[in-house]
Amino acid sequence: MPAPSFQELILALSRYWAEQGCVLIQPLDLEVGAGTFHPATFLRAIGPEPWHAAYVQPSRRPTDGRYGENPNRLQRYYQFQVVMKPHPADILERYFGSLEALGIDPLVHDLRLIEDNWESPTLGAWGLGWEVWLDGMEITQFTYFQQAGGLECKPVMGEITYGLERLAMYLQEVESVFDILWAETPSGPVFYRDVYHQNEVEQSAYNFEHADLEALFAAFAHHEKEAIRLAELGLPLPAYEQVCKASHSFNLLDARRAISVTERQGYILRVRRIAQKVAECYYAQRERLGFPGLRGGRA
């Protein structure tokens, strides 16, 4: 089987996980650092309601930007996220099935689960799981959520996060992320560089040089306040968007090195505090609604 293009990779994973019963939803339209921030993972991990979903999430890591000059580092990249709650007992086998669907033969390649316990200090979330290594290269994070927003996850959500660029580089055997074939089109091949290289150059300049510090500090404070206010108004969903925005403001400030090592911990704790508050508010809200997801239909 010829190596899939980047979009074929997304299509194949989407089709595979749809067949496993996942709802295919779309990316969150906010800047977040990982697919875990999408309410379809973070909020849905909370409470007893079942939930199975898959989606692509653009993920922004301002400090990882390299002005498009490093073949392996990007300040914005894609994760393919699968969440299953409760997870089926054979979720690992299903995951390996997805790799086979991409043409990776587990009797040829060295596929390994290497212990990796995940923790998001800002979200007050943690879980146990693995990095998945394909011939020594990490292509996936696999996590059994134990806590989110400081709340115990019952039942447990299984979370699978594919690093799409890594996987595509491996399958297409290219050494630079920018050489990934995005799609073959009638007017010729389109590469990752054609789609995103200039974005890396300009966004790196913004992240490291031009982001307005004063506005970002103000934004952080504003979003923090809003998150608390909205949570107190019993509006956990908009409150949670404020948490995401506060977190991204912090990431930008961090990239500008505007936060000293000693202050850094304080900011992380502040985000965690609002994430926790919103998580509790969300749980209370679902409880008030009678956990509609338990009645068969998905709310």
């Binding site: 073949p71 011939d135 020594g136």
Partner: peptide, 24 residues
């Protein structure tokens, strides 16, 4: 030397993978 966890049908593929992962 890398220690793989199987008798691969094609160990060359694993070798190429190990070599690629160390390069960057």
């Amino acid at each position: 030397i890398g220690i793989a966890n199987l008798d691969s049908k094609n160990p060359e593929e694993i070798r190429r993978g190990y070599e690629r992962v160390i390069r960057p």
